[in-house]
Amino acid sequence: MEKKKIGITVEGAGVLRKELFKHTVTLDCDARVEDLAKKIKIKKGLQIAFFRNGKRLNRNVKLHDGDTIKVVPLVFGG
């Protein structure tokens, strides 16, 4: 039987704002951050982190229907 689906709003931050416009990703209901990471395509070599409500998420954290996830590039310096 096909799993129920959840909708996650994804938005790139900083240098990913142009590359990763705000959009919705559909995932299985038991999806975790790791599953979301596999779904999005970004510049090769760019390390990223995921944030929900301003808090960084570990890759095995479970996602919920309606979550808004910021994808933050980890480029340091400045």
Partner: peptide, 10 residues
């Protein structure tokens, strides 16, 4: 300042 937003989240 390209990643100021990223720095902000961390």
């Amino acid at each position: 300042a390209g990643n100021l937003e990223g720095h902000m989240y961390t």
